[in-house]
Every structure is written in C-alpha cells, then in structure tokens.
C-alpha cells in the first residue's frame, strides 16, 4: 500500500490521490453493475416469459392434451406425469435419504469408511444430471424393466439424482439439534435408537422436510434424465399406474421450444409460467416450514 500523504501537498502526489479516489469510485460502480446485470438478467427472463406466454394461459391449456395444433395444446398429460414422478420420487427418496443421514450422523463411527461415504455423496452431487439419465436407461429401463420406459424407472432415476441433496440437507438438520438434548436422554439410560427416535428426529424433521421439498423442486424442473428415460414427446394420455409411459412438464416445454412455429414457442412460455409457479409454491412451503419450526438453540 502506498501512502502519499507523507509527501505533503505536492502536485504529483495530489494527482495520484485523485486517481486513486476515482478508481475507487469507478470500480464501485463496476461491482454494483455486475450484480445489477445478474438481477436484470433474471428480470428480463421473467418478463420475456410472461409477455410471450401469459396470453396463452387459460383453463383449456391446463385441461387439454398436447396437440399438433398449438392453440389446442394443453399440459394435462405432462402435469399428471410430473405429479406421478414427484410422488414416487418422494416415496423412494424419503426413507433412503433420511436413513443415510441418520446413519452417518448418529450411528457410524467417524472412521475412514464413513469419510469415504461422505466424500462419495458430495461427489455424486456434482455428477451431471444427464449421466444419471444414462444410468437409469441402462439399469432401470433396460435391466430392471426389460426395455419399458415407465414412470417407476423415471422416479428411481430422479431418486438417485436428488439423493445427495436430501442426505446433505438431512445431515444439516440433524447437526442443528443441540447435543445437550442427546446427552440428557443418554443420561437417562436411553439407547442410541431411542435417542434418535424420541429426541433427535422430532427436532430435525422440519429441517429435513424443507430440504426434501427443495430437492423435489429440483426434480420437478429437471428434464435431461427424464428425456433419456422417457423419450416420449407427444403424449395424449394420463398415466394411471407406476408402469405407465409418461412425460413431464419440462420435457413438454422442451418439445414445444424445439418446434419451429412461433405459436409453439408461446405455448412453451405458457408452460414455463406454470412450471415456475409450481416451483415458487414448493419453495415458499419449504421456507415457511423452515421459519416456523427453526430450532432456536441457545
């Protein structure tokens, strides 16, 4: 750092002071601009989607099937598919995700194996979603279901995809329970499982729930793995059982965006509005749960 004031009020150092001051101000504007460009990008995206799609959003759009004619297209099939996939994914994810978190936090010894499992989980969180699609295609579709591209295969793939997020969020929720609570239960002679069941879990469940809802919202918006698993683009039926074929909302949006006609783009924008509203709702619920039940440990 250069201290110029020591040179006194000489002209040269005064000019340098001025340069430093102005450089400070210019870069302040630059840094502010960087963050504002990010916010402006978000605003442009939302406004772009709203302008394109709002006019096409009506009741018919929600209750029609996909059609070759853009104006008669609707999102009934992908909406039903999304609900099915998220429901099944939740059923598969909750026991495995919470179980793993409890094991790692409360049961496992802090040894090399445990560290390896945790390292493995954080690595899985960084694997591109399209790779999970390949895994699901080979293991679930080809091997488990003999080539049937059904809902269960899609949901199992999504489960593996969001499992690392659920595990990490559940671990955080367990860690947030003050250890004095556990100590008190142990002091009364409780077994490890009793401590988990009656002391840790009641405290940690809200945190886990908000983490799981956020992870499921990730599954709602994810399209690449489902695209590989389902590979259906014009679905005109509502799935009725876990072995039905299916499509999901982001996949339908992708199909419409890929059409060259302008009207299909607008229909895609209307689909995006619905998708964003669903995600907004899920995030709001997650935040509400977190704020309502937040553990306030002193």
């Amino acid at each position: 750092m250069i201290i110029n004031s020591a040179h006194g009020p000489g002209g040269k150092s005064k000019r340098f002071e001025l340069i430093r001051t102005w450089r400070d101000r210019i870069f302040f504007v630059g840094f502010l601009l960087a963050i504002l460009i990010g916010v402006a990008g978000l605003a442009a995206l939302l406004i772009d989607v709203l302008i394109d799609g709002l006019g096409f959003l009506n009741w018919k759009f929600l209750t029609n099937y996909a059609s070759r004619k853009p104006l008669e297209s609707g999102i009934l099939a992908p909406m039903a598919g999304t609900v099915w996939v998220v429901g099944l994914t939740a059923i598969f994810t909750v026991p495995v995700g919470i179980g793993t978190a409890i094991y790692l936090e409360e049961f496992a010894r802090k040894n090399r194996l445990t560290r390896l499992i945790e390292l493995n989980i954080s690595n899985l969180a960084g694997v591109p979603s399209v790779i999970y699609g390949l895994l699901g295609l080979a293991v679930f579709v080809q091997f488990l279901f003999n080539g049937s591209r059904n809902l269960t295969a899609g949901a199992l793939t999504m489960t593996l995809l969001i499992l690392p997020i659920v595990i990490i969020a559940s671990q955080e929720a367990i860690k947030a329970v003050p250890s004095s609570y556990r100590d008190a239960a142990y002091a009364m002679g409780a077994t490890r499982w009793q401590v988990v069941k009656t002391v840790v879990m009641p405290q940690a469940v809200p945190g886990m729930m908000s983490g799981i809802i956020l992870a499921l919202s990730r599954a709602v918006g994810e399209s690449a793995p489902i695209l590989i698993i389902s590979s259906l683009v014009w679905v005109t039926f509502v799935p009725t059982s876990p072995d039905s074929k299916f499509t999901v909302l982001p996949l339908q949006i992708f199909t419409w965006v890929s059409q060259p006609q302008e009207d299909f783009r607008s229909i895609a924008a209307a689909g995006i509005i619905v998708l964003l509203l669903i995600l907004l709702g899920m995030n709001a619920v997650a935040i509400w749960i977190r704020n309502k039940y937040q553990v306030r440990s002193e």
């Binding site: 978000l42 995206l45 994810e222 399209s223 949006i253 965006v257 995600l279």
Partner: peptide, 8 residues
C-alpha cells in the same frame, strides 16, 4: 430456475 427455461 430450471435449465429448460434458460434454454428458452
């Protein structure tokens, strides 16, 4: 925000 929206 879902990636398909960014694509759009």
């Amino acid at each position: 925000i879902p990636t398909v929206v960014y694509g759009y």
